[in-house]
Amino acid sequence: MSAWPLWRRQIAGVFALEFSRRFLGRRAFAIYAVAALPVALAVLYAVLPIPEDVRGGPAQAAAEFANLFNAFIVRTLVFLACVLVFSNLVRGDIAEQVLHYYFLAPARREVIVIGKFLAGWISTSVVFSLSTAVTYVLIVLARHSAEGRAYLLDRPGLGHPAMYVLAVCLACLGYGALFLLIGVLFRNPIVPAVALWGWEWLNFLLPAALKKLSVIHFVQSLAPLPIDEGPLAVVAEPTSAWIAVPGVLVVSAGLLWLAARRMRDAELSYGPE
């Protein structure tokens, strides 16, 4: 008899538990607050007085959003949220001495890892997709409602926000798998997280081959509008979405496999002895 139905139910069980623990309780406030920051910026952008001559049209607003998305939403907020959520899925449970409740269930450790990851990925993706979409719409519509509406609905249409949402989901997938593994491997995930943050921020300086050893390169490749990374940037051809998406999926699956393997042999020792 196939084990899939059992695994599916167990993954659903881990997902439900993780979701209620991490995204419905008080501890979820930090994630929602981080995701609300770009929306708050967009509101400020809408209400602060900007001189008529520098305001530009919706296309300029969309270009400004592209910079905000690249520098602030993905590289900073999504990155930090993924550190917070995914590195704690396992490491946080070890620190709180509650991981044994999962380990005592008659479920494969791989199934537990997948359930935890899916809870983190779906939740962060939904929260940051909403935040990204709302921020985009607010920025494009804020100062030019009629032109902005046309820009949003006719040309280029909703394809742009859809690509940003896809890019956010891809970022959560890639960073999520990476930080879940880091949480499994390192007692203190902060040091590797800071090193990775530096790597992601310096990505624009790296040669084309090394750029591909980062999540941000593939996320940028999905962004509908190019951004100017400055005079020092090494320009590389963006990777096609048809390669970027499956590529990040495959690498994330590999990272999850490593985390699951590590978890399979993991030991928990509690008590005074």
């Binding site: 059992l6 139910r9 167990q10 659903a12 069980g13 881990v14 439900a16 538990l17 209620s20 409740y101 999962y102 005592l104 269930a105 008659p106 479920a107 537990i112 359930g115």
Partner: peptide
């Protein structure tokens, strides 16, 4: 919640 990790549906758990 942890009974569901065993693979039980919500009602049975």
């Amino acid at each position: 919640g942890f009974l569901r990790v065993h693979g039980l549906d919500a009602a049975e758990a």
